[in-house]
Amino acid sequence: MDFYLGLAQVIGVHTLLGLSAWCLLHTGQVSLAQGGFFAIGAYASGMLTTMAGWPLGVALPAAALISATVAVAVGFPALRVKGLMLVVATVAFAEIVRLVCFNLTWRVNTGSGPVGPDGSLGFGGIRYFPSNGWSSIEILILIWGLVAAVMLALAWFDRSRIGTLWRAVGEDEVAAQSVGINLTAAKVSAFGIGGAIAGLSGGIFAHQVTHIEHGNFTILLATFAIAYPILGGLASLWGTVLAVIFIQGFLIEGLRVLGDWRSLLFGALILLVMLLRPSGIITSPIGRWFARSIRFDRPAAPTTGGKTHA
């Protein structure tokens, strides 16, 4: 049972990460910086609860805010480039964050010995949940509560004027600009909101696993972050959820019985899904059934793709 609770927690955290990439993909920006924002959120919230002794309820929003601030700061220079250049710029940012985590040593003494990031050894002892007596079920409820809140907020965004602007920018930048849409505002707001969500998921991740290190935040994580919305399909938020369940639940955990062959199949199955459903899982019969049975956002509108030269 604990195994399934843990899996559901992982799926929740990764869903948040995927949703953060969804925001950026919606404005036509392929960003591999999400892993970096995730890392910032994880380190910031961990340091706030262990070193400063803040309660989680304050530390998580603070971590999200810090990530969002960094994301906006990154978003402005990143506006100068797009397509492949943006991908590489965000890769560079994520690598810088990872390497800073790798080199960051800042230990403080508390009642129960020194805590804090310890360079290449990572940052352990983020024991807010165990020391406050949270059970797995309660952590799970917290995670999925946050997922639900973020999805509701994004669904509302998507129907509001902001969502329309984002989609217009994602479809065709030149056309959007010529009808008077402020490109800077649209892109930077997507970066900021995406950064906040990634920071939030990083914060939960740090407290769920209690030990984080630079190896958690490689380019592979950022690739997963954009893989979820793309594999799932950008037309609906549910695509991201479906893709996370497909990758984390089926490809990573479900295929464990195959042993060594699992990791071989992993890449091949991602490839296969893309070949069969270039617009995402959500356009497949299973995806349509899933989206129909939980009718929550609009019926899938054909708004995928956009003009991302990537």
């Binding site: 993909l25 392929v30 954009i226 893989a227 793309i230 594999l231 950008l234 991602i270 490839l271 893309m274 070949l275 270039p278 617009s279 995928t304 793709g305 991302t308 030269h309 990537a310």
Partner: peptide
């Protein structure tokens, strides 16, 4: 579909 190619 540039994103699909990226993912593949």
């Amino acid at each position: 579909k540039p994103l699909a190619t990226l993912m593949s």
